[in-house]
Amino acid sequence: MTGSQHRLASLHDVELATLAATGDRGAFGELVRRHGSAVRGLLRRMGAAPSEADDTAQDAFLAAFEGIAEYRGEGAFAGWVKRIAARQYLRRLQRERRLASLALEAEEADEVQAGPDAAQRIDLDEALKALGAAERLCVTMCYGAGLSHAEAAEALNLPLGTVKSHVKRGLDRLRTRLAPADGAVEGRRGNG
């Protein structure tokens, strides 16, 4: 690691963003190094194939670099760039006209709801894949990208109530799917 890389690695995200806003590509490169895998992970949870997640993350970081002056450090840089990435991915979905089929897929998923068994209790990524596409998008946008229900509704061009329903239904399914086999979920409620 060179002296410049070491210096950049020791800076806070807000300091790096300030440097990047002045044209320091190395500072922005450090932000990409720090947050790139988290952004790609969010996109994969939203349903993107690995190569699509990589491409969308790259597009999101390019958009973030172009708009870095808009980042004021009021929230975490990771959250800011994840929101950009989520919106980039949604634009890709809209271009591919997949959103029209999401409502139909969500209705079909409601009709075919399998009960959980111990073999199906798997990690969060696998559990998210089991959700309908609309539920997965709404849950990951609201909890993975940090968008409010209203922001997600606007980005998806869906009514607010529909987004809230998808999030609630998706979270209920995730809780069921990820619940301990001994039923200990009830005893842990109250902390959330």
Results as ranks from 00 to 15, higher is better:
Met141Gln: 11
Val32Arg: 04
Asp117Trp: 03
Ala133Glu: 11
Val139Leu: 06
Gly132Gln: 04
Ala103Ile: 12
Glu126Asn: 14
Arg40Thr: 10
Arg189Thr: 08
Ile68Glu: 00
Val14Tyr: 15
Ile122Gln: 11
Glu135Asp: 10
Phe77Thr: 07
Ser51Phe: 08
Ala118Lys: 10
Asp110Phe: 10
Glu30Thr: 03
Glu66Ser: 11
Phe77Asn: 09
His6Pro: 05
Gly190Tyr: 00
Met1Ser: 05
Arg173Leu: 04
Val167Asp: 01
Ser165Asp: 11
Pro159Phe: 13
Ala103Glu: 14
His6Leu: 15
Leu62Cys: 11
Phe65Ala: 13
Leu178Tyr: 05
Val81Gly: 02
Ala127Asn: 09
Arg188Asn: 07
Leu102Trp: 11
Leu43Ile: 07
Arg92Gly: 15
Ala69Pro: 00
Asp59Cys: 11
Ser148Asn: 13
Glu154Trp: 15
Pro180Asn: 08
Ala118Val: 14
Arg175Pro: 02
Val139Tyr: 05
Leu128Trp: 01
Val167Trp: 02
Glu52Asp: 14
Ser4Lys: 15
Met46Ala: 12
Ala85Val: 01
Glu186Ile: 14
Lys164Asp: 03
Ser37Gln: 14
Gly47Trp: 09
Asp125Gln: 06
Ala118Arg: 10
Ala48Met: 11
Asp172Gln: 09
Arg44Val: 12
Arg72Ser: 02
Ala184Asn: 13
Arg98Glu: 02
Gly183Thr: 06
Arg45Pro: 03
Val163Phe: 00
Gly36Val: 01
Arg95Lys: 13
